[in-house]
């Protein structure tokens, strides 16, 4: 029964998540205004039929910018989580499987990367690479892979002692075969669940960096930078802050809830 409820939850939240992705991927179908077109005659217009979420300081349609900006935010988040997932899982599996010196070196390196405050790293990376989404992603990615590495390492350590891994040794299978055929598929579920729960955090991180001016370069639409730009005139055009903030909150809630639902399903 518990499993069934958890399954229904996953289906429901997955539909919401897919809907969000669909709306942002096909933003052109829903937003009829150009997100980058300025209109001096419609500066800071309140929400109306032509501009459902109003306009910003340059007369740009906030609705169109929220939809197109979602494309940037969601795509960057997914890409960053995916890259961290791949790097972290590979590092964790190597450390856990081979143990010894490889384990000590890789895990100490992971500890070192965690020792630097994320924002300081972001500023340093922005200083080296210049501002932009790539820099923001690198600065977050420097520490993000560690959680995947730790999780996959601990699962690899426990899987390594399973009878079927020992049996694979007796069958003469290579380390690569054992890692790819036996270990990776059996740790995929917990690591994938972690990836889902990381989506929300990553989105906050990327939007936060954009808010500080370390993310996307204007005029590119992105939720964090939209909030940052509009906060200067929040008292006269609160919609310019409210809608991108709402979009960020809703997206984070949906993906966090999806991660929780998958975790509930696995534990049920």
């Amino acid at each position: 029964m518990k499993k069934r409820i958890a399954k229904i939850k996953i289906i429901f939240v997955s539909i919401l998540a897919l809907l969000l992705i669909f709306v942002t991927c096909f933003a052109g179908l829903f937003a009829h205004n150009d997100p980058y077109a300025t209109n001096a005659l419609a500066i800071r217009t309140a929400p109306c039929l032509q501009y459902p979420f109003g306009t910003d300081n340059l007369g740009r349609c906030v609705f169109a910018r929220v939809l197109y900006g979602g494309r940037t935010t969601i795509a960057a988040t997914f890409l960053l989580v995916f890259i961290s997932f791949v790097i972290g899982t590979v590092v964790g599996m190597i450390a856990g499987y081979f143990g010894g010196l490889a384990d000590r070196l890789l895990m100490r390196f992971a500890d070192i990367t965690l020792a630097f405050p994320q924002m300081v790293v972001a500023i340093a990376v922005a200083g080296i690479l210049g501002t932009g989404m790539t820099g923001a992603m690198i600065s977050l990615g420097i520490t993000m892979w560690v959680s995947f590495a730790r999780l996959s390492r601990s699962h690899t350590l426990s899987l390594k002692n399973e009878g079927y891994i020992q049996t694979a040794f007796f069958a003469g299978k290579s380390d690569l075969y054992i890692i790819m055929i036996h270990i990776f598929p059996n740790l995929l579920a917990p690591v994938f669940t972690n990836a889902l729960t990381q989506i929300g955090t990553t989105m906050i991180g990327l939007s936060g960096l954009s808010f500080l001016g370390l993310g996307v370069i204007p005029p590119k639409a992105e939720w964090g930078s939209m909030i940052s730009e509009a906060r200067a005139y929040i008292q006269i055009a609160p919609w310019a802050v409210f809608y991108p903030a709402l979009a960020t909150i809703v997206t984070i809630i949906v993906f966090n809830y999806l991660g929780d639902a998958v975790m509930d399903y696995r534990e049920a």
Binding site: G163, T167, N186
Partner: peptide
């Protein structure tokens, strides 16, 4: 080797 815990000696997937 035939292990005591037979189930865990087969990949669950």
């Amino acid at each position: 080797v035939i292990f005591q815990d037979a189930k865990s000696s087969f990949d669950p997937r």
